[in-house]
């Protein structure tokens, strides 16, 4: 019967699309691995972590400074973004007068939607000169962290906000019946109940910070070194790829794919951790 044929055809095209969509991941992993293989097989995986500096044209592929820089900028950004994000959500839900809260939410959403290249531009022309005034050269670990925190703060805020919205109103009624103040309710009831979601949102934000390229490329100085102070310029894994991809060839190019693979692996572990933590995650 023709109608059955139509259903069968539909099912086939749906399945084909799904295979294509989920096969894409396999294809990406395959290509990253294939492109990484020359460098990995020639110098060995340990050379990427315990080598003699990053001199890719001379066959020295030590990624440690970049790895440290990535972790340092992202962790610092987290340390700033999480308190601000949680405070923003609390404000929006429990403190702000109605109109004010709406405007504030709108600001958060706008910040969340601002392209990272625009934040990078702003950081480079506004924040970096300020830091230069404090301690040269201005483009530094701290500049990267601050702009990154501005970028990921909305993620934490929106995730926390969604978690707060999902809490039953009875929490407030129960706390009020016990004569608890608003702050006491937040500290003892609200935040503990939303803990899992806040954690998941923070991990997601950390993953975004680690994977971000443009902001760190534009404001953190791009010098390959293990930083010793907040005002040292650093180069992250992502910035390294963006900077050298343009001219890299041979093993050098291949080593960039290795760092890409490492980066993807790092971010994936975080993404899975966020999922496992069981919180409700908003894709902001």
């Amino acid at each position: 019967m023709s109608r059955l044929d139509r259903d069968t055809r539909l099912l086939w095209s749906l399945s084909a699309s799904a295979v294509l969509a989920s096969g894409l991941l396999l294809l990406i992993v395959l290509f990253l691995a294939a492109e990484s293989w020359p460098a990995l097989s020639r110098v060995g995986i340990q050379a990427f972590f315990f080598g003699k500096g990053w001199h890719p044209t001379e066959g020295a592929f030590d990624l440690t400074p970049m790895l440290v820089a990535s972790l340092a900028t992202s962790t610092l950004a987290m340390a700033v973004a999480v308190p601000f994000g949680v405070a923003s959500a609390l404000f929006q839900r429990f403190y702000a007068p109605v109109l004010f809260g709406q405007i504030y939410l709108w600001i958060i959403v706008l910040l969340a939607g601002t392209p990272s290249v625009v934040l990078g531009l702003w950081g480079l022309t506004t924040i970096v000169p300020l830091i230069l005034w404090l301690a040269p050269p201005g483009t530094s670990l701290i500049a990267g962290s601050l702009i990154l925190s501005l970028m990921i703060m909305p993620t934490v805020a929106l995730t926390t906000d969604a978690a707060l919205a999902a809490l039953p109103q009875s929490h407030w009624a129960g706390a009020a019946a016990l004569g608890l103040s608003r702050e006491a309710t937040i500290i003892n009831v609200i935040l503990p109940s939303a803990r899992a979601s806040i954690f998941a949102g923070s991990i997601l934000a950390l993953a975004r910070a680690l994977g971000e390229t443009m902001v760190v490329l534009m404001v953190s100085g791009n010098v390959v070194q293990v930083p010793t102070s907040l005002f040292d310029p650093v180069r992250t894994l992502t910035a390294n790829i963006a900077l050298e991809m343009a001219y890299a060839t041979g093993d050098h190019r291949s080593s960039l794919f290795v760092s890409g693979l490492a980066l993807a692996g790092l971010v994936l572990i975080l993404a899975i951790a966020a999922r496992r933590s069981g919180g409700h995650v908003v894709h902001a």
Partner: peptide, 14 residues
């Protein structure tokens, strides 16, 4: 979910 988590620079490489 894994695909959504991959950093954009890695998409650039791919």
């Amino acid at each position: 979910d894994v695909l959504a988590g991959i950093p954009s620079i890695v998409f650039g490489l791919f």
